[in-house]
Amino acid sequence: MEYIISVLLSGISVGGQYALIAIGYTMVYGILRLINFAHGDVFMVAGLIGIYLSATLPLYITIPLVIIMTVILAFVIERVAYKPLRSAPRMSVMISAIGVSYLLQNVATYVTGGQPMTYPTIPGLSATVNIAGTPTKWVVILTPILVIILVILLTQLINHTKVGMAMRAVSKDFETSQLMGIKINRVISATFIIGSALAAIGSILYFTNYTAVTPTIGALPGLKAFVAAVFGGIGSIPGAVIGAFIIGICETIIKALPSAWDVSVFSDAFTFALLIIILVFKPTGLFGEKATDKV
């Protein structure tokens, strides 16, 4: 019983970390119809920034700086690599995103020398408590709570503020939004800023759990968060969050199955099998809109 609770808790926590990355994928897709392949690598860079800053700065300065610097990185990527291609075919923008992804990985390899770097221990998050008799890291308990708070704030922002209204409008129709006087580039930047800030928070939680940061570490959580976003119906924020929790929980359960069954190595393959099955029955994902293309 205790084992089951601890597996579920850790699944929810992993799911929450995927959710923070998945929101960035789904919001950017919602507004630009772009799968931002560089997003997982931005997450990786956030991890490295955390490592380098914490070497000289106290954590209470490092953590906000990680978020700020990650946001600046994402903002610059959008302005330099995506904005000039605004009226180009979508495929060109996607290739640009893949290029940025490799660029970030290569720069990370150059800077770190390709060696895995160890994420700092964040006292509050790494400390353990006893939950139902099993020692559990605080990060496991805090992640879902933090995710829920952030998602509520984000939903409020999107549904009840002026910039949120502009985001909803721009995601449907660039041209008419411009006719309303909306500066669409600002709204797009705001989307990248929100997505990357959440990914930066996700990186702090994730790397507290999996402490080795390598240049390609963003790929797998990035891919799974992307799967979560598709699974939930890409473009939908609640969809991405629910998808991320489902994937995190399923994956953790499979990893925790008795070793005699020998299935734990298939946990990643399972994630993708799940995606394929869902997409066969519901091609637009759990909460996806019918028409995914812009008119």
């Binding site: 209204m165 502009a166 409008a169 309303m180 006087g181 909306i182």
Partner: peptide, 9 residues
């Protein structure tokens, strides 16, 4: 909201 967005500026 459609009316409000018309006054976005």
């Amino acid at each position: 909201e459609n009316l409000k967005i018309g006054a976005y500026m």
